[in-house]
Nucleic acid binder design. Structure first.
Length: 680
DNA sequence: TAGAAGCAGATTTTT
DNA sequence: TCTGCTTCTA
C-alpha cells in the first residue's frame, strides 16, 4: 500500500495513528491537508474501516470538497472502490442533516427554513429596541455558541442592557420556533439540545461514527466542543487537526482553550507536531517565528524551513496610502514583466475599509485584480429576491420572504400598506389573514387586496410551471417578474449575470433530483460562488487569507493601531496570530509596508510603524522613533528619518503628537509627522 | 408611494 | 468615506 508515499516521518506517524485521541498540531505550510487526506484514505484503504463510520468535519465548504476530491482520487489510484462513503461536511451541514432527522424531538416539523444573517437582522429589528441590532445579534450568537438558553441568560443578567438583550433573545427564539425557522447557530445549538435531552441519540450516533476527524480545531467554539463530546461518548477515536498559532476567530466565539487543553480533555490523547514547512523561504519563516514567539498562550512550535533561501522580507514606508499603492503597483508590474503570474500575488489588509484604496490603486495602474470577500453571492439583493420567491413557492407562510418581494418589483404596495397589513394580521400569518377576505379588505383596501391576491396567484403559477418543467418555470419567472426593473441601468448587466448563474445552479440541482426545499437550505450554507481566480492579483482581509498561499504577498497598513488593531476588546495575542497568518501566506517574497498618513473612513491618521515589525526584528529601536521631543523641532533643526535619512526642518505646524514638519532631504521636500523624526 | 435629502455609525465574519 | 436608515416632499 502506498498511502504513506511522500509523507515525512511525523506525517506518516499521524496517518498510522488509528485508535484513540490524536491532536495533530500542524504549523502553517506543514502539509496538514495532505496528512488529513492520507489518513482518511489510509483508514479506508489500508485498515479496512467502513467509510460510512467515518465523520470528517470542517469549517468551510471549500475545505470539505477539497478533502473529498483528493481522498477519492487517492483511493481510486489505489484501486479501492467502496459502496459507502465517509460523511465529509461542514459542522453546519452536519447540524442540518442532524436536524432533518431529529428535530421532531423538539416537537418541530422537519420542513424548517434556514435563515441567513440578513433575515435574522430583520426579525430582531421587529422587536423594537434602542440597542443596535448587530449588538443583539452577536450577543445571541454568543449565547447559543456557549449553549446558554434565553432562560439561563435571563437568570444571570447583571445590567439593564443585558436584560433587554436577553428579552429579545427570548422573543426571537420563540418567533423562530413559532414559524419553524432556524438560524445558522441553531443548526448546532438545537442539535446539541436534542443530544443533551436524548442521550440514546448521542450514543447511537457515536456508535455509527466510530472515527471522527476535525479540521481547523483551533476555531471550534464551546458548542462545537460539546457536540464533539457527545459524538465521542462511546469511543475516543477523535483526530483533530489545527494550529493554535492560527486561531483568529476568538471574537466570534472560537475558544483557543479547546486546542490548548485537548490532551487533558481526552484520555491518553497523543500529540504530534508538524513543524517542517514546505511553503515558505527560511527568511519568511524567521520573521514569522520571531513574531509568534512573543505570544505566551501557545503550545509552542517552531516552523522549520524545508525550502531554499530566498530574498529577505522587505519593509517599506511611504508618505501616504496612495503612495503605498503606487509603489506596490510598480512592484507588481515589475514582477509581472519578469514572468510572475498575477494570480501568484496577493495584497492583504487587516481592515476591509482599506480595500477601497487598494482597488483604486490597482485600477489606476491597470493591474487585473480580484477583491475577495466584499460581497457574497447569495447576499446580493437580486439573488436574495429570487430566493425569496423560491422560498415562498415552498412555503406560502414564509412571511419574511413575502414581505421582501411583495413590492419587488414595484406593485404599489409600499411601507404604509405593509404596516396596515401587519397590523391587521396581528400575529397571524399573512396568508391566513388574506383568506379572511372581508376583514383583510377592510384593513388594507380593495386595491391592495387585489395586489395581494394577484401575488399569491403568481406564486401558484410559478409552482405549476416548475411542476411542468424547469424551462417553463424560468420562462414564467423572467416574463412575470422583472426583478431588475428597480436597479440602475449601470448595474443591470452584472445583476442579470448573477441571476443567470443562480438559475443555472438551480437547474442543475433540480435535474439531479434535489427537492427545491433542500436546494434552498444548501444554498444558505454555501458561501461563495468561488469562481477560479485566473490572471489577477488577489486582494483580501488577512482573516480571509487563512488557508491560502501565494508566491508574493504584500501586507499593507502595518501601522500600530491598524495592525495590530487597537480598540476595546482587542486581544494582542490574537492580533499577533493574525500577523503570523498574514506572514506565512507568502511562499517566496513577503513585503510589509506602513505609511505616515493614512486616509481611513475619510479621516487622516498618522500612526507609528506596527509593533509587529519590531517584534519580528524587522525594525529596531522603537523608543527612539516614538519619543523624540517634537517641541524642539523648529525651523533649521537637523533631523534624521529612518527611511529618508538626514534633513533640515523648514517649517513646523501643530503641537505635540500632532506636530508636523516640512523637511528638506537633500532638496526633496516632505511633510512628516514629527514623531517619526529623530532630532540630531 | 417613491425618490431625495439629511444623519449616524462604521474590526475582523469560515456557516 | 461610504452605507443604511429615517424623514421630508412631489
Amino acid at each position: 500500500m502506498n498511502f504513506l508515499d511522500g509523507l515525512n516521518a511525523k506525517q506518516a506517524q499521524a496517518v498510522e495513528h488509528i485508535d484513540g485521541a490524536l491532536l495533530l498540531l500542524a504549523g502553517a505550510g506543514s502539509g496538514k491537508t495532505k496528512t488529513l487526506i492520507s489518513r482518511l484514505a489510509y483508514l479506508i484503504g489500508a485498515v479496512g474501516i467502513d467509510p460510512a463510520s467515518i465523520l470528517c468535519l470542517t469549517f468551510t465548504n471549500k475545505a470539505s470538497s477539497e478533502m473529498r476530491e483528493r481522498a477519492t482520487l487517492l483511493l481510486q489510484n489505489q484501486g479501492i472502490h467502496s459502496p459507502t462513503s465517509p460523511l465529509l461536511c461542514t459542522f453546519h451541514k452536519f447540524g442540518l442533516l442532524f436536524l432533518k432527522r431529529y428535530i421532531s424531538c423538539l416537537g418541530r416539523e422537519n420542513n424548517f427554513v434556514l435563515l441567513d444573517g440578513d433575515d435574522c437582522k430583520k426579525i430582531i429589528k421587529g422587536f423594537e429596541s434602542k440597542i443596535a441590532t448587530s449588538t443583539i445579534l452577536s450577543a445571541i450568537s454568543h449565547y447559543k455558541n456557549s449553549t446558554l438558553s434565553a432562560c439561563e441568560v435571563l437568570q444571570n443578567v447583571s445590567d439593564s442592557e443585558e436584560r433587554k438583550i436577553a428579552k429579545v433573545y427570548e422573543a426571537y427564539q420563540n418567533y423562530l420556533e413559532r414559524n419553524n425557522l432556524v438560524d445558522f447557530d441553531d443548526l448546532l445549538y438545537l442539535s446539541y439540545l436534542i443530544m443533551e435531552q436524548n442521550p440514546s441519540i448521542a450514543q447511537s450516533l457515536s456508535k455509527k461514527y466510530s472515527y471522527i476527524m476535525v479540521d481547523e480545531y483551533q476555531d471550534t467554539n464551546p458548542l462545537q466542543y460539546k457536540i464533539l463530546r457527545f459524538l465521542t461518548c462511546t469511543h475516543q477515536n477523535l483526530c483533530v487537526v489545527g494550529d493554535d498559532d492560527q486561531s483568529i476567530y476568538g471574537w466570534r466565539g472560537a475558544d483557543i482553550r479547546n486546542i490548548l487543553e485537548f490532551t487533558q480533555d481526552f484520555l491518553d490523547a497523543k500529540m504530534i507536531k508538524l513543524e517542517q514547512n514546505y511553503r515558505s523561504t527560511p527568511e519568511i519563516l524567521r520573521v514569522a517565528n520571531a513574531l509568534i514567539e512573543k505570544n505566551s498562550q501557545r503550545l509552542g512550535k517552531v516552523l522549520e524551513p524545508m525550502l531554499e533561501s530566498g530574498r529577505e522580507v522587505e519593509v517599506c514606508s511611504y508618505e501616504s496610502d496612495r503612495e503605498e499603492m503606487q509603489a506596490i503597483s510598480k512592484k507588481i508590474i515589475h514582477l509581472h514583466k519578469s514572468g510572475v503570474k498575477y494570480e501568484d500575488i496577493a495584497i492583504l489588509y487587516r481592515l476591509n475599509g482599506m480595500a477601497k484604496g487598494v482597488e483604486d490603486g490597482l485600477l489606476r495602474a491597470k493591474i487585473p485584480y480580484k477583491m475577495i470577500g466584499t460581497l457574497r453571492f447569495y447576499e446580493r439583493a437580486e439573488v436574495k429576491d429570487v430566493i425569496s420567491y423560491l422560498r415562498l413557492m415552498v412555503n406560502l407562510n414564509d412571511d419574511f420572504s413575502l414581505l421582501r418581494v411583495l413590492n419587488r418589483p414595484k406593485r404599489g404596495f409600499g411601507k404604509t400598506s405593509e404596516d396596515k397589513l401587519l397590523h391587521g394580521a396581528n400575529g397571524r400569518k399573512i396568508r391566513e389573514f388574506f383568506e379572511n377576505e372581508r376583514e383583510c379588505k377592510a384593513c388594507i383596501g380593495e386595491k391592495n387586496y387585489k395586489t395581494l391576491s394577484e401575488f399569491f396567484a403568481l406564486i401558484a403559477e410559478l409552482n405549476n410551471a416548475l411542476a411542468h418543467s424547469f424551462e417553463k418555470f424560468e420562462d414564467t419567472f423572467t416574463q412575470k417578474i422583472d426583478i431588475l426593473s428597480s436597479y440602475p441601468i449601470a448595474e443591470k448587466e452584472e445583476r442579470r449575470l448573477n441571476l443567470k448563474e443562480l438559475f443555472a445552479s438551480l437547474k442543475e440541482e433540480l435535474n439531479a433530483n434535489k427537492e427545491l426545499q433542500e436546494y434552498l437550505n444548501d444554498l444558505s450554507l454555501s458561501s461563495e460562488s468561488d469562481k477560479e481566480v485566473s490572471n489577477s492579483v488577489s486582494c483580501m482581509s488577512v482573516h480571509l487569507s487563512k488557508g491560502l498561499e501565494f508566491d508574493y504577498v504584500f501586507v499593507i497598513g502595518c501601522e500600530n493601531g491598524f495592525f495590530p488593531l487597537m480598540g476595546d476588546g482587542g486581544d494582542i495575542e490574537e492580533e499577533r496570530r493574525l500577523g503570523y497568518v498574514a506572514f506565512t501566506r507568502a511562499r517566496r517574497e513577503l513585503n510589509l509596508s506602513y505609511v505616515h498618513t493614512r486616509y481611513y473612513r475619510g479621516k487622516a491618521s498618522s500612526l507609528p510603524p506596527s509593533r509587529f515589525l519590531y517584534e519580528a526584528n524587522l525594525l529596531e529601536d522603537s523608543q527612539e522613533i516614538f519619543t523624540t521631543g517634537a517641541e524642539v523641532m523648529g525651523a533649521g533643526a537637523m533631523v534624521r528619518h529612518k527611511i529618508f535619512g538626514v534633513g533640515r526642518v523648514l517649517e513646523a505646524t501643530g503641537k505635540g503628537k500632532e506636530m508636523k514638519v516640512r523637511v528638506s532631504f537633500g532638496g526633496n521636500e516632505r511633510v512628516i509627522l514629527a514623531s517619526f523624526l529623530e532630532l540630531l
